[in-house]
Design a protein around this nucleic acid. Structure first.
Length: 884
RNA sequence: GGGAGCAUAGCUCAGCUGGUUCAGAGCAUCUGCCUUACAAGCAGAGGGUCCUUGGUUCGAAUCCAUGUGCUCCCA
């Protein structure tokens, strides 16, 4: 068989083969039963999106958690799905229509939605298909979409419920306006970016004194002067307080505006004079309210200026075009004092990237303070670790946000999404109701008589996050049927895996909705991944083009290789500095395992009776040693998992397989070329290999399945996916085996060979001087085999110079080697020096009365032992030095 | 401007309640090997003032303070 197995592991066909098999066998589907549940809801990716590096990491982690739980006998359910991403999707549909020559404004809402659904059916959900390539073991039969009827119904119900509880209101407030998406955004959807801009210093002349005097204001947005309704100075500012109450003229349009005074104005910024534009700045709006200033809104919803700007040539021109033009015009008019380079933070839309305009607008809001007052567990449960964050330091960010929480703007001026269930009569009265009939009766209750034809539903839709915040409940239809068997069984879910950038979008709001609607937390653990960056620490982004195509990477390194490579270097909360070499490591590991498999499968097996005892005994020792080692590491892995240290758990299994299993164990039991292996060792090795594959399976599902299937004869329907995870064997067999000295001897001999250019093929004799022959005798066979030693005697050897220090023993290499005496001497002297220092520090400690008094007794014992060992080593070194 | 976090080998990171079995791991580097499982490999090796300066302590990578540098969040 061995001859036919390829030297190189080829992931491609193996991965496709097993994924289809898993789906065929329906291993990933879950129904409630008597077992303990283990559930994860996927943080729904954008339906229009494609898989990117962040998704790969995120979903690999979820898959590891799910697969492990599945093997541990839990009834696991990983619910996949997508959200409808109103702005992003609508933008894409609008663009598609534009390419067809259709304007959105020419379409009715219904027609537009028809196109949108068509688009979604065609392109939506690509990302879910891509997740399959990664090996994600989602319950695909449970795939949900935030806009499907049931989930939309839940969203509407939640809106109505919160409105009736007084936690949703409609209000005119300053919002973040996205002029490209033509919609309001919540604060969380605004991304601040530092940009290089200009600070314009503009003169405002005094009314009635136009020729001689003026004051100067500084602004980065000169086009907004056309909406100014005041100039404000600090009353304590001696430069200006004489002017308070006077009137200045807005340049160009000569609108007279008052000079007002407020301590809000920073005297040291710009000129100390602030132009007040209540319609286009949040702080100015507050000032406007305070001083009862008029509000002049000069912007259209698409970011162009309207007729209120009073300058005809700016009318219908984009704000940025006007900014350029007005700078020139002001300069020409002699209004510019100077222009400085200036760096400032500009808000941009998370979805469209457009520069946000603060804009006064009537929107729907969730009253977050009220919400939190009712649900203090939202903060408490995280702070007291009822919901555990990994890493815990994310609790700070969470706390800070909740303690400074602002109302949530949930209406969006879009069509793609759940339409707000508010109904208006012709006079502007409104009710909130699920259907028009309910609305009519609610109007009636208020004593308003309305006809159906007079009523209009709100034109806006709800924020997508208003769908996803209830996702852990809604995917189990927990609103539709409040105590159905799914929600009762799977909720609260176990883990949520997400990026730190959406701690507010998802984590915080899911916790909020969990307590409000289920009176229960939505998940027990939150695992925060890091962000994927490139080697220069830049975030991966489309515009930089520094994001590799995940599918190409899977093609190149195998899904297992990609998963392993990414996970190995990403502790929770730490960013990954992505580089393909990481994935190479993963691919190499697949290959390593593959070759171990090839080796084992290539052996010819003969009954134990045909082997001599020494070999049988040695193989037995080897197997017992590795068996114990495996248990030790398995225990370690358990601990790491309970701390969610996934990358460390993976590293532990990596080293267990590569170093302990391949480099040591297999070499220990490997028959000489062409020789057969004895039956019992073979059987044991298969058993051990199988265990290793199971432990690794959650991380690298494909290669482990392929090997597992071939290690033994399997029946149809069997799979490592549903095999049981190894238990730690508490009853250690023959754990008195201590191979440490033997291993050290082997390593030291190899080192000697390396240093002196002695071929591994040259065998020689060694003499061991030790008080503990039992640490060598049982393992002679192994030492001879792995270090190519011809014979071992227990005595002081003849060799004067080739003496290896193995712990406190001496190993004499009986071989004539031309030693570099000076180098050896130097090395010995150096070691003696180190030991002297070491001894000194130990002595100091032991002679320190306070140390002896305060330190634990076992610590003092340790120190004494250290002293003894060091003294023996020192004596050995000194005698070696003398001989040299 | 407000808040939080981080600083340990060339790189990415472990180091819990202080005690040289705590100065570690992987990758990278270097040396020697095409040894019939694997060169996507084997056997070895080198490499760190644990950011600075103080303090607490018998004892500090670990605790405290200061400074410096970086990152993130919020406005």
């Amino acid at each position: 068989m061995s001859i036919e197995i390829s030297k190189i592991y080829s992931a491609k066909e193996i991965e496709d083969k097993w994924y289809s098999y898993w789906i065929e066998q329906n291993y990933f589907h879950s129904e409630p039963d008597s077992r303990e549940p283990f559930s994860i809801v996927i943080p729904p990716p954008n339906v229009t999106g494609v898989l990117h590096m962040g998704h790969m990491l995120n979903n690999t982690i979820q898959d590891v958690l799910i697969r492990r739980a599945r093997m541990k006998g839990k009834n696991t359910c990983w619910v996949p799905g997508t959200d409808h991403a109103s702005i992003a999707t609508e933008a894409k549909v609008v663009q598609m229509l534009r390419e067809k020559g259709i304007k959105k404004s020419d379409l009715s809402r219904e027609d537009f939605l028809k196109y949108a659904w068509e688009w979604k059916e065609k392109y939506g959900g690509i990302i879910l298909e891509q997740l399959k390539k990664l090996g994600a073991s989602c319950d695909w039969q449970r795939t949900r979409f935030t806009m499907e009827p049931k989930l939309s119904g839940a969203v509407t119900d939640v809106f109505i419920d919160l409105f009736e509880k007084g936690m949703i209101y409609r209000g005119l407030r300053m919002v973040n306006w996205d002029p490209q998406g033509k919609t309001a955004l919540s604060d969380e959807e605004v991304i601040y970016k530092e940009v290089n801009s200009k600070l314009y210093f503009i003169r405002y002349k005094f009314s009635g004194d136009e020729n001689s005097s003026f004051i100067t204001i500084a602004t980065t947005r000169p086009e907004t002067i056309l909406a100014d309704t005041a100039v404000c100075v600090n009353p304590n500012d001696e430069r200006y307080n004489q002017f308070i109450g006077r009137t200045v003229l807005v340049p160009f349009i000569n609108r007279p505006i008052p000079i007002i005074a407020d301590e809000y104005v920073a005297m040291d910024f710009g000129t100390g004079c602030l132009k007040v534009t209540p319609a286009h700045d949040i702080n100015d709006y507050a000032l406007g309210q305070k001083f009862n200033l008029p509000i002049i809104d000069i912007l259209n919803d698409d970011g162009t200026l309207n007729e209120k700007c009073e300058v005809e040539k700016y009318n219908n021109k984009d704000r940025f075009a006007v900014r350029k033009q007005i700078a020139i015009d002001l300069e020409d008019g002699g209004f510019i004092q100077k222009i400085e380079e200036y760096k400032n933070q500009v808000g941009t839309s998370e979805r469209t990237g457009a520069v946000i305009e603060p804009r006064l607008s009537l929107q729907w809001w969730v009253d977050m303070k009220k919400f939190m007052a009712k649900n203090p567990q939202v903060l408490d449960s995280v702070m007291n670790d009822e919901i555990k964050f990994h890493p815990a330091k994310m609790k700070n960010t969470y706390k800070h946000w909740l303690e400074n929480i602002k109302d949530w703007c949930i209406s969006r001026q879009l069509w793609w999404g759940q339409r707000i269930p508010a109904w208006y009569d012709s006079k502007g009265n409104f009710v909130v109701a699920k259907t028009i009939d309910e609305a009519i009766s609610k109007f009636k209750v208020q004593g308003l008589k309305v006809e159906e034809s007079e009523i209009k539903q709100d034109e806006d839709v709800l924020d997508t996050w208003f769908s996803s915040w209830i996702w852990p409940i809604s995917v189990f239809d927990g609103f539709d049927d409040k105590s159905n068997k799914d929600i009762n069984y799977y909720y609260p879910t176990n883990d949520l895996v997400t990026g730190p950038d959406i701690i507010f979008f998802w984590v915080a709001r899911m916790v909020m909705s969990g307590y409000e609607f289920k009176q229960q937390k939505p998940f027990n653990n939150v695992y925060f991944t890091g962000l994927i960056r490139d080697k220069q620490r830049r975030k991966m982004s489309k515009s930089l083009g520094n994001s590799p195509d995940p599918l190409e990477l899977i093609e190149k390194f195998g899904a297992d290789g990609v998963r392993m490579g990414m996970l190995l270097c990403s502790p929770a909360g730490n960013d990954i500095l992505f580089d393909e070499s990481l994935l190479e490591q993963g691919r190499n590991f697949s290959n390593k395992i593959w070759n171990a498999f090839r080796l084992i499968k290539g052996w010819e097996i003969k009954p134990d009776s045909q082997f001599d005892l020494e070999l049988l005994k040695s193989n037995q020792i080897s197997a017992q040693w590795f068996d114990n080692r495996l248990d030790e590491i398995l225990n370690d892995i358990e601990n790491k998992f309970s701390d969610y240290k996934l990358s460390e758990a993976l590293m532990a299994i990596y080293k267990l397989i590569w170093d302990d299993f391949c480099s040591w164990y297999l070499e220990m039991i490997k028959p000489n070329f062409g020789d057969p292996i004895n039956q019992s060792t073979y059987t044991k090795t298969i058993e051990l290999f199988e265990k290793l594959m199971k432990i690794l399976h959650p991380f690298m599902p494909f290669v482990t399945e392929e090997i597992w299937q071939n290690l033994d004869s399997r029946k149809k329907g069997e799979s490592i996916c549903i095999a049981s995870y190894p238990n730690i064997n508490t009853s250690k067999v023959n754990s008195e085996n201590n191979l440490e000295r033997a291993f050290e001897t082997i390593s030291k001999i190899r080192e000697l060979r390396n240093k002196n250019g002695i071929s591994p093929k040259t065998s020689f004799e060694i003499s061991v001087k030790t008080n503990e022959e039992k640490l060598y005798k049982p393992y002679e066979f192994l030492i001879k085999k792995l270090a190519n030693i011809s014979s071992i005697v227990y005595a002081e050897g003849a060799s004067k110079s080739n003496v290896l220090a193995v712990a406190t023993d001496q190993v004499f290499v009986e071989l004539n080697i031309q030693l570099d005496v000076d180098a050896e001497k130097g090395k010995a002297i150096q070691e003696i020096k180190y030991l002297e220092g070491f001894l000194q520090s130990v002595d100091q400690k032991l002679s320190n009365a306070k140390f002896v008094e305060n330190a634990k007794p076992e610590l003092i014992e340790k120190e004494k032992q250290k002293k003894l060992d060091a003294e023996i080593k020192m004596a050995l070194l000194k005698s070696k030095l003398n001989k040299l």
